[in-house]
Design a protein around this nucleic acid. Structure first.
Length: 437
RNA sequence: GUGGCUGUAGAUCAGUGGUAGAUCCCUUGAUUGUGGUUCAAGUUGUCGCGGGUUCAAAUCCCGUCAGCCACCCCA
């Protein structure tokens, strides 16, 4: 019985790895120019971390957390034991607090990339193990609307850096924690009695998380929502002013956005600015990335600093790598990476294998990507076929004539040109020829 | 978690009750030591898994698992 990879997981095979490297190196380079440093946190954390940060009632915590049950002692509380991380923000904040990073830095700019896990039913753009690139700016210095603008701009710039076009940025502000509470109450009051005919799902959303109704896909629900005049009525004066500053910052950076009062986020910790970037060609899972401000989370997780009365602020985002690759594919931007080899050494006869082996070693010592055919004693012709398949730019021929004269044949596989080179100068000569290409 | 569609060779798929197929890939060959193109030949299978109906099942029925798409959720 063949064993295959678990549901909702996938292998990244060698033929696709170049695409991943491209995303990773582009991201690393860009993060550097914005002053972000990489942080790596464990793939699993105490279950309680996610329950406390994301919100007990959220779907992610309720149904999608992949817990490591064997590690939980019998009779222990639900918060005991471990869970695979479903997102990156909570672990980063945990680390920020644990090492008291705010003590050294007024503003900590951190980025991460790696696997996340959610026990969802797999679908296009939705896996149980998926990969995110994310950034978080945390600290007393993070309480500034221009930082919101900068982070959103960085997120957009990353996507453009990957080669993506035609994505859409939506922004909104949820206001302070208090604004959020007031807004929820107002929404419940407004919608009371109006959604009863919509079915159980809407009713349960009404109870669980009223905000969800705002971006519902159900046409009947949309109709009800559209009768509401939301605008910015849910924001306090300070919240409104903050949002205005964010928008001004975005304008200054030339970032194109759309304000949508229906944009909400599924995780409890978001306050003030939230944003989402979507690409229409992806089907139902169209969000390439999303993020927002989460000022309350640091203190909620036991952080903050009594010596400094100002609140520690935080803002961040995450991008879904698989979704970015899907979008790039949809836009025809994924080019199959060709196999690559500097030189393939062909042995004239099986007996020359030892000699060939030695030459390959010398070539590699000289910094060249070199290879040969092992142990099969295959015909000349077959070895050339193999060289071709491996994408060899040159072939070195080690045959009877060459061995006798202490030379090697060097063939340029693009032009077909072939020269005789002194055996001792083979590495040197080949390096020179490769440099010329 | 709910619904719909689909599981046949390494890959993409045809085959609707009667001997398991195509194309690509792969292997070999087209006069002794030269690749890419072409031509010829060859190998590939618990027909996802388990049960049932039938003289006979890849094909019909039930269950199960997996994939895809949508809902939900979200990156």
């Amino acid at each position: 019985m063949k064993i295959s990879s678990p549901r909702g997981t996938s292998d990244i095979l060698p033929c696709h790895i170049a695409e991943w490297h491209q995303l990773e190196t582009t991201a690393r380079t860009l993060f550097k120019t914005y002053g972000y440093s990489e942080i790596r946190t464990p793939v699993f954390e105490d279950t309680g971390l996610f329950k406390r940060s994301l919100g007990e009632s959220t779907e992610v915590v309720n149904k999608q957390l992949l817990e490591i049950k064997s590690q939980r002692a019998e009779g222990a509380s639900d918060d005991a034991g471990f869970a695979l991380r479903p997102e990156g923000t909570a672990p980063v904040v945990r680390a920020y607090n644990q090492y008291d990073l705010g003590r050294e830095e007024f503003l900590s700019k951190l980025f991460y990339m790696g696997p996340m896990f959610r026990g969802e039913r797999p679908q296009k753009g939705r896996l149980r193990e998926f990969h995110q690139i994310g950034a978080e700016a945390i600290g007393r210095g993070a309480n500034h609307p221009l930082l919101d603008a900068e982070i959103i701009a960085l997120c957009v710039k990353l996507l453009k850096g990957f080669g993506l076009n035609d994505f859409k940025l939506k922004i909104n502000s949820l206001g302070s924690a208090e604004d959020k509470k007031n807004f929820a109450n107002w929404l419940r009051a407004e919608l009371k009695g109006k959604i009863d005919h919509l079915g159980d799902e809407s009713k349960s959303q009404y109870e669980r998380n009223v905000f969800r109704l705002l971006d519902s896909k159900d046409p009947a629900c949309k109709e009800v929502i559209n009768t509401l005049e939301i605008g910015s009525r849910h924001l306090s004066e300070a919240g409104l002013k903050y949002f205005e500053e964010v928008k001004k910052g975005l304008d200054q950076l030339g970032v194109v956005y759309e304000v949508s009062s229906h944009l909400v986020r599924g995780l409890d910790y978001y306050t003030h600015t939230v944003f989402e970037i979507a690409y229409a060609g992806l089907g139902a899972q169209d969000a390439l990335g999303a993020g927002g401000r989460y000022n309350g989370l640091i203190e909620q997780l036991g952080g903050g600093d009594r010596r400094f009365p100002e609140q520690v602020g935080a803002m961040g985002f995450a991008l879904g790598m698989e979704r970015i690759l899907l979008a790039l594919e949809a836009q025809g931007k994924l080019v199959q990476a060709k196999r690559f080899l500097d030189v393939f050494v062909v042995a004239g006869k099986p007996e020359y294998e030892t000699e060939t082996f030695g030459l390959v070693h010398e070539l590699r010592q000289g910094g060249l990507a070199a290879d040969m055919d092992f142990g099969r004693g295959r015909a000349f012709k077959k070895q050339f076929e193999q060289a071709n398949k491996l994408g060899a730019r040159f072939v070195i021929i080690l045959g009877e004539e060459e061995l006798k004269n202490a030379t090697v044949g060097v063939k340029n596989m693009t032009t077909g040109e072939q020269t005789i080179v002194d055996r001792k100068k083979a590495v040197e000569e080949l390096s020179r020829q490769l440099e010329r290409l």
